[in-house]
């Protein structure tokens, strides 16, 4: 409970405020580190998940003669669930753990303390750009995940298994609603971005500055983020699609 309070104050102090020109530069740098460098793993995973969805979906749908609905099935699974959740889990493993370890090591080597003594607030200089980079990049990565996943589904469903191309796309177009499917998926992704980045950065800032402390905090980042993402996904799905 006390840790949650500290984490809340920490989030407020670092995330709220108007960035300076230098702040934008640091943010861009972190966008590269957190966002661009996560692109490969997220897109490749998206491709495979789209392909697997199409393969599994086809074998079930074909029994009912409903393989024309493959496009709609792939798109809805990705947009509503798999893209936000899997991208967030990958993001926690790839970028979250790196953020924790980096900030933790800066703390252990007194870099944060020396920055404070120079009169620069590490919350604004070190933490804020990383937080905002995480907030912004995960939703973008999620979009990339969905797009590549749908293309992967097309490769397997249409090119390989021979589903009619027109029905793959037109069924998808007819049955995917912009607000309730794409919009809700994006809301999930924004929530996950906040939670995962917050956990990662706070774990780094708050850890015990020893090698053991850093290793534990990095583990905690991945475990807490994953549990939080899966738990919140259930809650959000219940609210959005469960009629709560």
């Amino acid at each position: 409970m006390e840790a949650l309070g500290r984490a809340g104050i920490f989030l407020f102090q670092s995330a709220v405020g108007v960035p300076s020109r230098e702040g934008w530069r640091l943010w861009l740098h972190q966008m590269h580190f957190v966002g661009v460098l996560s692109l490969a793993i997220v897109l490749v995973s998206g491709l495979f998940i789209g392909m697997v969805l199409a393969l599994q979906g086809y074998t079930i749908l074909v029994d009912f003669g409903a393989e024309q609905a493959l496009g709609q099935m792939v798109a809805l699974s990705l947009l509503r669930e798999l893209a936000p959740v899997v991208a967030a889990l990958l993001f926690a493993g790839r970028a979250g753990s790196a953020l924790t370890a980096e900030i933790g090591l800066m703390k252990a080597t007194e870099q944060l303390t020396s920055m404070e003594m120079i009169g620069v607030d590490p919350l604004r200089r070190v933490v804020a750009p990383r937080l905002w980079a995480g907030f912004v990049s995960l939703p973008i990565l999620t979009v990339g995940f969905s797009v590549v996943g749908i293309w992967g589904g097309y490769l397997v469903g249409v090119e390989w298994l021979g589903v009619f191309e027109g029905s793959y796309w037109s069924n998808m177009q007819a049955n995917v609603a912009f607000v309730s499917d794409i919009g809700n998926g994006m809301i999930k992704s924004v929530v996950f971005a906040l939670v995962v980045t917050w956990i990662a950065v706070f774990q780094g800032y708050d850890l015990v500055p020893t090698s053991e402390g850093i290793s534990r905090a990095t583990t905690r980042t991945v475990v807490y983020s994953s549990l939080a993402v899966l738990g919140l996904d259930f809650v959000l799905t219940a609210i959005m699609f469960g009629g709560l």
Binding site: T109, E110, Q111, M117, I118, D121
Partner: peptide, 18 residues
Amino acid sequence: FTLRKRMGMLFQSGALFS
């Protein structure tokens, strides 16, 4: 933080930004 601009501190480890 304004007061700290008037101070310098030399850390035992150096604490340089890596």
